[in-house]
Computed example of a mutant assay.
Amino acid sequence: MLILGIDPGLNTTGYGLLEYSTGKIRLVEAGVVRSLPSKKQSDLGLRLKSLFEGISEIVDQYKPEAMAIEQLYSHYAHPRTAIIMGHARGALLLAAGMKNIPVHHFKATQIKKTITGHGHASKEQIQATVTRELGLLKAPEPYDVTDALAVALCFVFSRKMTEQTSRKRAI
């Protein structure tokens, strides 16, 4: 199974593709999709189009079977941030919807807890765990990529737990 993990952002969206097969996890590809170069040089519509096209290109090339994406969280003191992030997530979800890819949403604290065992883990802790779990020689950078891989790993680990529970019930 090929899973596309997404760390949504209007300026920089991290992505990570993991292959999960017979209990093994393998990194296929990871990187970032950037909206147009400068906030001042483009309007919101063009930036969203840029994100949509970037993720669509990845989806078309790799044909993932599932997308895992971080849920929207914004502090009540910053509602504008939540609205802008909602637009970015919408463009990314549309790319998955256009190809009938099921999308799984995970809260940031759920991702951190699943990956590191601590719901309030630091970026460095997540990066170290992702590096170890994927057997990487070097930590993924920037953090947008690390976070996208963490979302994909969260999906895989959740799926493994479901499979183990199903096997126990069958016995």
Rank of each mutant, 00 (worst) to 15 (best):
P79C: 11
F52Y: 13
A121Q: 07
H87M: 06
G90L: 01
E163H: 01
K160M: 09
V145P: 00
S21H: 14
F155Y: 14
F106P: 03
T165P: 03
Y20P: 05
V59D: 02
T165D: 14
P79Y: 12
G5H: 10
S74P: 00
Y20R: 07
T22D: 15
L51T: 06
A121T: 11
E53N: 04
F155A: 02
K160D: 10
V151A: 13
V32K: 05
L134D: 03
G97R: 04
D144V: 06
T162K: 15
T162F: 11
E65D: 15
I55M: 11
K112I: 03
K138G: 00
R34E: 10
Y76Q: 15
M1P: 15
F106C: 00
V151W: 06
K112E: 06
S166E: 14
V156H: 01
L4C: 09
L136H: 03
Y20N: 04
H118V: 14
I6Y: 01
D144Y: 04
V103W: 01
A108W: 04
L94C: 02
I171S: 09
T146A: 10
Q125F: 05
E53L: 11
K107N: 12
G117R: 08
K39L: 13
A96C: 12
G90R: 02
A139K: 12
K112A: 09
Y62E: 03
T116D: 07
L134W: 05
R159H: 09
A96N: 07
V151P: 06
L51H: 02
A77C: 09
T12Y: 00
G90Y: 03
L46A: 14
A150F: 01
